[in-house]
Design a protein around this nucleic acid. Structure first.
Lengths: 159, 159
DNA sequence: CTTCAAAATGTTATAGTATTACCTTGCTAG
DNA sequence: CTAGCAAGGTAATACTATAACATTTTGAAG
């Protein structure tokens, strides 16, 4: 069962355990979770919402961690490559990964009203798209699966 | 069977029939396929490749059909809303639709080397993502399904 | 046929997203 | 110690997209 992101939960604990998992990942793979990268990840994880690169940059620079776009983009690049964050293509925005480490092909539920994002799993090869790819002789390397709509909370408030 | 886009085919005939279908669509739904829109669609369909808005604009303005970005974006907006073209979110680029009219939830196979794009079908509600959405009480309104990788031709040339 | 309103187009300016290039810092392997 | 390299700082710029407003075209009503 998934989509804890849309439900009430102990978010402080959620963040703590995710950060721990991220650190473990980095340690295991010899990646350096430097202060900027660490803080960027914390900011992305602080809500289950998609944040633009410039939003992230604003947070970082408010804390004295770099003032120019490349700072944010480099941190995001690292986090995405390390599987600690994901890019939401439909929004040109970024979200912290809630299952760092598990090698996964993520799929997202994105609320168009509050920009909350929940992460689910896909199996690219098992889908109809996988069938089409096989039939066409196409080799899938990366897949983007995103569904936009309304989260439960925003449905209720009629947003 | 699908993915004609990656295979040899009579592309002139392919374009002709697609344009006819697009015209029929517009006629049936009272939409106006004006010269700029028509030409934009032809350009998008001239290869099964994703074109950036500014690439399209370059083609259009070379033919005297408008020189500023809004010209291209308005044409694209019309075509996408009418279901005659699709946006490829992973590339911020656009591609002509090869089955205009059929109400469909498209999925794409995108070659990272030559930017060729083949269109397939998804059933958002039937996928694992659909299951996750239902379980979470999330209402899907639009879905983006894109797979990046290598098309058969680019696999051979070792691109 | 004329008139009017809506739709489409033209143009300027600007907002938002992302990268290139170059320089400095600090670590670490030899 | 120091050469080499990964990371971070900064300036400039490229790419993607939209806002706002003026003008023209179109088609329907009278």
């Amino acid at each position: 069962m998934s989509a804890i992101e849309f439900r009430d939960h102990d978010h402080a604990a959620c963040m703590r355990s995710t950060m721990q998992a991220a650190e473990a990942q980095c340690a295991a793979r010899g990646l350096r979770l430097t202060p900027v990268r660490r803080r960027a990840l914390e900011i992305l994880l602080s809500e289950h919402r998609a944040l633009g690169a410039y939003d992230l940059l604003a947070h970082l620079s408010a804390e004295g961690l770099g003032a120019q776009p490349p700072v944010a983009y480099r941190a995001l690049d690292f986090l995405v490559k390390a599987g600690l964050a994901h890019k939401i293509e439909a929004l040109n925005a970024y979200v912290g990964c809630v299952h760092p480490g598990e090698d996964h092909a993520p799929a997202f539920l994105i609320c168009r009203s509050c920009r909350s994002v929940a992460e689910a799993e896909t199996s690219p090869t098992k889908s109809r798209l996988g069938d089409a790819a096989r039939a066409a002789g196409f080799r899938i390397e990366r897949s983007v699966v995103e569904a936009e709509g309304l989260c439960p909370a925003c449905q209720e408030t009629g947003a």
